[in-house]
Design a binder for these strands. Structure first.
Lengths: 182, 182
DNA sequence: CAGGGGTACTTGAATGTTCAAGTGCGAGTC
DNA sequence: GACTCGCACTTGAACATTCAAGTACCCCTG
């Protein structure tokens, strides 16, 4: 059993440490992880760059606009929106301030009497915006992901991603709002 | 052929736009992309959180330390290091300033006469640091990725990631240092 | 209805990344 | 050998995200 040179794990050849209980990756695992890591670094950057370049928004803001555009009345309560766009409430709040400044979104108090507090609403201009930029975004997703994989590869990728996202999420989610065993 | 409700693509039911040349995703593609996107959002966050919590570094700094620890003499020229750690030179420079402040790395002028200019060198303390934190990092990678997938799933994931990273990279890489057709 | 606690945000400061200059040095040019 | 060009980095400002308070309103309890 030889020592694998581990870019992201095994670090030296010094064997004085408690070697046995550290589960270093095999060469093969190493390679797959390396590839995944590379994708993790490059894909979001590429997606973001396209949105920034052609639309002037980052992918989080895009997400917010997209979520709003699909909601009844183009309106969502902020907490729900934050959860949908997978960011903290604080992040959403800052993003909304920016989007309001551009005139694409407005905040309004929730109308329901006795209901919750704030909602975000997509303006007409915001709707026009997202409709204008969505095609370019989809094209980029196609170019970078959909079109470079076979159907089987895409399915396998999606499946693996689902499993990983589920595990990664449960660590992050301190709310435990879902039916997880916490 | 019905309209798919597209979280990240098709935005409204208004069909007045140039519908035909926008290649909207199918429901299935949509789902896979959605899963991938979710992983893209959650996995790096989780990895980063573990490193921050247990080691006080972010994953970029970890990457820098790891790269250095594997180099002969624990020394690399800055440009090479920047490329290995997949960040801009500026990002590296800022990161090195932080790492120097912690005493894990030092900058030194390249010794080769007529050679290039600067190098980064891992200090003894830096080597101890990376050796101390590597196991925890590997364990986290295992927990989040390796251990939740079958071997076949991991292989498929790696393969897909390689393809995507290659495409995503060529857009990002303005240097065209590699043998790409540019 | 006064007081306490919780929910739903908002805000400002700290941190990290990017972007646009700026610097210093070597090489090629005349 | 001065001039210019370009490479290899550095730096500071702008921007985004996170973290830790802070605020405002609701409900519940006495």
């Amino acid at each position: 059993m030889f020592k694998q040179r581990a870019r992201l794990s095994r670090v030296t050849n010094d064997t004085t440490t408690t070697e046995t209980d550290v589960p270093w990756l095999t060469d093969d695992q190493q390679q797959q992880w390396r590839a995944l890591f590379e994708m993790l670094a490059t894909l979001p950057t590429a997606i973001d760059a396209q949105l920034k370049r052609e639309a002037g928004v980052n992918s989080y803001e895009y997400q917010v606009l997209a979520s709003l555009s699909q909601s009844p009345d183009h309106t969502i309560g902020l907490s729900v929106l934050a959860e949908e766009a997978r960011g903290s409430l604080s992040r959403l709040s800052h993003a909304l301030t920016r989007l309001e400044k551009s005139g694409w979104v407005e905040r309004c108090p929730a109308s329901e009497p006795g209901g919750r507090r704030m909602q975000a609403r997509l303006t007409d201009s915001g709707l026009a915006k997202i409709e204008a930029i969505a095609p370019g975004h989809v094209r980029e997703v196609r170019r970078l992901v959909i079109d470079v994989l076979t159907d089987d590869q895409l399915t396998a990728l999606g499946e693996a991603a689902r499993v990983i996202a589920a595990v990664a999420q449960e660590g992050t989610a301190e709310t435990c709002a879902e039916g997880a065993d916490c």
